[in-house]
Nucleic acid binder design. Structure first.
Length: 531
DNA sequence: CTGGGGACGGGGCCC
DNA sequence: GGGGCCCCGTCCCCA
């Protein structure tokens, strides 16, 4: 019995020894493998660093090459290239996902420091290779007209008012006598270019966005006050326009590229730094004559609306475009600085106008625009309403384009419609029609509802709108007891009773009472669009 | 399907 | 008679 106990004890001891030996062996193996593994990790990390460095070098080289290429392209066709992208965006071909934007910062605005580059996504939004900076600074000067058609108003010295004073421009191309009339001349009447698209190298300006501050006070010429005054509003249509912007001068100049290569494209616009002290431009410098001419010549072309994005850090209170020469009034704006919610329609691009509209090149003889007394001249700041209006402008631009695609727009060459829109070349029978139509482009809404302050481009639309407040529904259905505020709605409603469905889907044969229903159906069911 | 608004053409009135 | 101006009707889009 005792022997059995001893035997078991010995067995247990042996087992313990063996177990310890096994554990020790395992630990040794693990340690060895761990050391090897650590060594491999270290080597891999070193390789990763090397590869990363190489990748960075390649990326930098690629950026440099692309930048060089882009600069060359901009040197030839500065306006078109960048705005091509904007047009794509405006048409929904692109989407602003927080990168591809234009920035407009007012003078004295602290949120964006001068010369502070803003990296924006460009093109497909997959890379951030270039920088577009739209600058806005203090008062400056832009006085330029196309060679040979100098307008005394436009050539007026902003300080002295002297007619015919040469531009302050210093670039040779500006004064090149060989400058043909077809070269673009981005002209601003009384002020300066407020915003420019500038290449990263700060050597070339590709296009311009102009901005006017519309104010009713002649004293509001101080740049700082102007900047703060953005929260004000253009109080009256007849008041003067004041422009504030960068102390730079943009020159049109003979294209450095082969003229035949550029064709009808606008020439390059170069920017040169000017001494702000030498060119103070305030409203005081403008003569009454210039103001009158400004209003007379171009009032209907420009926006009087206030477009604001309250609290968004950026406001587009008054988008005004003046173009003389072959370049279209191209502008774009994004009221959402950095919020990542920009939609493609937040851009407005009239570049297309240039491609088809020779009238842009010349001053369209707009009829004298009387200072009408709209039902309400309230043009005050409208917080979010401004963005709504802005989008409506853009939407209407798309709509106009869609109508043109359906052949509803006329070319303006017709004898009966010999008054073309200087933006889209659509022809109208009389200048008043053109004026109304151009509000589509300018965003001007002179008719304001006293009840809700909604604004309209046409008096009739305001009148129709006011039925919303009055509850008037003068159009009643004879088949039922329904009443409508619009005749068109009654007409549409009657189709319910008649069963009329004139719009047929070409794919499935389903019929609809309205074109919009058919369009929605085809989009959903057939993924196609009707034109 | 309804309701609201954008845009345009046509017609009448006045100068 | 022609042009400017205004009003109205209409079509259309979109929510």
């Amino acid at each position: 019995m005792a022997n059995g106990v001893v035997f078991h004890t010995q067995i247990a001891s042996i087992m313990e020894v063996l177990a310890n030996a096994a554990v020790a062996e395992i630990c040794k193996l693990v340690d060895d493998d761990y050391a090897v593994f650590r060594l491999e990790i270290t080597q891999s990390q070193k390789e990763n660093r090397v590869l990363r460095r190489k990748l960075l070098e390649l990326k930098v080289a690629r950026e440099r090459a692309e930048r060089t290429m882009r600069e060359r392209v901009l040197a030839c066709r500065p306006s078109i290239k960048i705005l091509d992208r904007y047009r794509g965006i405006a048409r929904g071909e692109g989407h602003l996902t927080g990168g591809h934007r234009s920035f407009v910062k007012p003078a004295g605005h602290n949120t964006l420091r001068d010369d502070q580059p803003i990296t924006v996504d460009e093109g497909s939004g997959t890379s951030t290779q270039h920088i577009i900076v739209i600058e806005s600074a203090g008062p400056g000067v832009k006085q330029e007209t196309s060679e040979g058609e100098e307008n005394p108003l436009y050539s007026r010295d902003p300080q002295t008012g002297a007619v015919g004073a040469p531009p302050v421009a210093t670039d040779k191309p500006t004064t090149a006598p060989a400058q043909p009339k077809t070269q673009c001349s981005i002209t601003e009447v009384s002020g300066t270019l407020n915003a420019i698209l500038k290449s990263e190298t700060d050597t070339e300006t590709s296009t311009v966005t102009q901005r006017l501050l519309h104010t009713g006070s002649d004293q509001m010429s101080d740049p700082e006050r102007m900047g703060l005054g953005r929260l004000g509003c253009p109080p009256a249509p007849a008041s003067a326009y004041v422009l504030y912007g960068s102390p730079r001068t943009v020159h049109s100049h003979p294209d450095s590229c082969d003229a035949s290569e550029t064709g009808n494209d606008p020439s390059c616009s170069y920017i040169s730094e000017m001494d702000p002290s030498n060119m103070p431009l305030g409203l005081e410098a403008q003569t009454d004559l210039s103001r009158r001419d400004w209003n007379r010549c171009s009032r209907s072309v420009y926006s009087e609306g206030c477009l604001y994005e309250a609290g968004e850090g950026m406001a587009i209170d008054d988008v005004t475009v003046k173009v003389e020469g072959d370049i279209p009034p191209t502008w774009n704006a994004d009221g959402h600085l950095g919020d990542g919610h920009s939609q493609g329609r937040d851009f407005l691009d009239y570049r297309e106008s240039l491609e088809t509209n020779p009238n842009v090149a010349a001053h369209y003889p707009l009829h004298t625009l009387k200072d009408r007394d709209p039902l309400s001249t309230s043009m005050g700041p409208s917080d979010s309403h401004g963005s709504i209006l802005f989008n409506q402008v853009l939407n209407s631009d798309d709509r106009t384009r869609a109508q043109a695609q359906r052949g509803e727009a006329t070319s303006g060459n017709s004898k009966d419609k010999r008054f073309p829109c200087m933006f889209c070349n659509k022809g109208f029978s009389c200048p008043q029609k053109v004026e109304i139509h151009q509000r589509v482009h300018t965003g001007e809404r002179p008719y304001s509802c006293a009840q809700c302050h909604m604004r309209f481009t046409q008096a009739g639309n305001l009148k129709r709108h006011q039925r919303v407040h009055t509850g008037e529904k003068p159009y009643s259905c004879t088949q039922c007891h329904m009443c409508f505020a619009q005749a068109g709605h009654l007409k549409m409603h009657l189709k319910v009773h008649t069963g009329e469905r004139p719009f047929t889907c070409t794919h499935c044969g389903k019929r609809f009472s309205e074109r919009s229903y058919l369009r929605i159906h085809q989009q959903k069911k057939h993924s196609t669009l009707i034109t």
